[in-house]
Write a protein that binds this DNA or RNA. Structure first.
Lengths: 149, 149
DNA sequence: CACATTTCCTACCATGTCAATAGGCTTTCG
DNA sequence: CGAAAGCCTATTGACATGGTAGGAAATGTG
């Protein structure tokens, strides 16, 4: 499955903000850029989408940056994905002048709609908090692993 | 989920060939073009991909066209999709210089890999014969529906 | 054999999207 | 005030998309 860097980076950035703002400090795009190795200017544009989607608030000025605008377990992945790319969870377009019962609509209902429905349900159940948990689990595992070398 | 016309048309064309070659006659690109309302020249290019994937054989000359090169229930959707677009079932690229345990790899394992795994398993279980069945069911339903008007 | 038919192959093109890069304005904290 | 940040807009090169076009090669039919 091909996914644009915009979606990929956006999700990473949002997770980074969530994790690194837990101490109360805002997270700057420069920090994210360095940690995640993503162009800062490009990142700024992407984060604008996250702000317009209502997931983060930006704080201008010295010591500024971004913080979540609501708890991570109230931010659903489907909403993030839609904000970053409104086609990623969209239905495959049913062509205009088409009768039902054609091959085209059969393929739609049998394949595309089912794949799409799964993706939607999966991302509706999942929140930013789940991504954070996964990250913590991985970090722990790595730490333990290092310990035993 | 966004899918290119190439993939969409390719799947429709292959299903059309399967259905309309059951009487033993080859199916020409002109016929498909008219039935499915797709540019014939564009269709020809797409079908070349289906031939190279080993799903159809082309018969040149008068009364020529395409036929399946093996039974529909031995043609898996994952293989068709890969032949038409090798990125549609591909993993999201794990960036080169990255340590495990980062946010990036967490998002991958928690989201993209899971979505991708589902798509792959789903299309591995499904064959062209299933698409044909769906089409027949729809046609029957429509017929019955018309009957009762 | 001649010919119509059909696949097969190559080239081309216009448009749009992607993935940034760049510059500068605005706001805010110290 | 001045530095640090977000915010906004424009531009760009590369590539993918969705075709169009022309013709060569093969092949069954008359």
């Amino acid at each position: 499955m091909k996914v644009s860097t915009r979606v990929e980076y956006g999700l990473i950035a949002l997770t980074d903000i969530a994790i690194n703002s837990e101490n109360g400090n805002a997270v700057s795009s420069a920090d994210i850029s360095e940690r995640q190795n993503i162009s800062q200017k490009y990142l700024e544009q992407i984060i604008i989408g996250l702000r317009q989607g209502g997931f983060v608030r930006g704080q201008k000025g010295s010591r500024g940056g971004y913080v979540l605008s609501r708890p991570a377990d109230k931010i659903y992945l489907c909403d993030i994905l839609n904000a970053l790319d409104n086609s990623i969870l969209a239905d495959v377009a049913e062509n205009g002048g088409e009768e039902a019962g054609g091959i085209r609509s059969s393929v739609n209902s049998c394949l595309w709609d089912k794949l799409n429905g799964y993706m939607r349900r999966f991302t509706e159940r999942m929140t930013l908090a789940d991504l954070i948990s996964e990250y913590r689990d991985n970090s722990d595992k790595k730490e333990n692993y290092m310990y035993y070398i």
